[in-house]
Design a protein around this nucleic acid. Structure first.
Lengths: 125, 125
DNA sequence: ACTTGACCTGGAGCGCACTCCAGGTTGGAG
DNA sequence: CTCCAACCTGGAGTGCGCTCCAGGTCAAGT
């Protein structure tokens, strides 16, 4: 039953302490344990949940939707279908995002090639 | 020598008219022709440049860096090396971005599989 | 000539996701 | 016991990239 300080948790999750506090405030992080002195004590479970948040965030899910997901997750087993739908919906968006990104990356590479071609004939000593 | 109205240009470029005006204001769009009445008249060249901006924007380049690129582009041929460097730098960032996105997408798919597995045994009539 | 909708300018406002701050508490090292 | 770094809270502030608005001008159809 390992506990982690806010600083450790920030390090492991890749969120800042401010962001962790903010996430708790808006309900993305619920029921975080406290020491007798009132300090946060994160568990491995919390770390796992933060990993999920990290994933959703990195794939561009808006905070509002993550809140919805968090709320469902607190609702227990019977919200599994809803959570699944939400994630699948999001996954479709991520696929589009990846498609767009890769297309535009190709354009970028072409642009770079163009610049290089425009440059190389004028290479001089 | 086709000219395009702001509305047409918005449609073709995928930027809103407000954004086009904003881009002109901050120097991303320079020397846009005007009709006698003071209205913008975009050229095919402008459209091409807007395509470049679209590409950079979609790949996550910050406005400030696009301004830098635009400034270089206005500087003519001798800025080609700098522009090339800037684009290559950006391309490296995009590669990292694509890597991260695809990694997190995998995690997302795993999460979805997990949800599905948790759900399917309990499918009942 | 009149109407109407597209367009103009300068500047204020917005939504998102944090980020920072003041002023106070806690708790482990020496 | 003292110190100091880590942590707490509520709330204000920030940066980005637009987006909207008021109050006016322009131009094409009738």
């Amino acid at each position: 039953m390992t506990r982690y300080t806010p600083a450790e948790t920030a390090l492991k999750s890749g969120f800042t302490m401010d962001t962790l506090r903010y996430y708790e405030k808006i309900g993305l992080l619920a029921d975080i344990d406290r020491t007798s002195g009132g300090r946060r004590a994160f568990t491995d479970d919390d770390l796992g949940w933060l990993g999920v948040l990290r994933c959703l965030r990195d794939t561009g899910m808006p905070i509002a939707q993550m809140c919805r997901y968090a709320e469902l997750a607190r609702g227990g087993e019977q919200t599994l279908p809803d959570r699944l739908a939400l994630l699948q919906d999001h996954a479709r968006g991520v696929e589009e995002q990846m498609q767009l990104l890769s297309n535009q990356y190709q354009h970028l590479l072409e642009k770079i090639s163009g610049h290089r071609r425009a440059l190389s004939p004028s290479v001089e000593v």
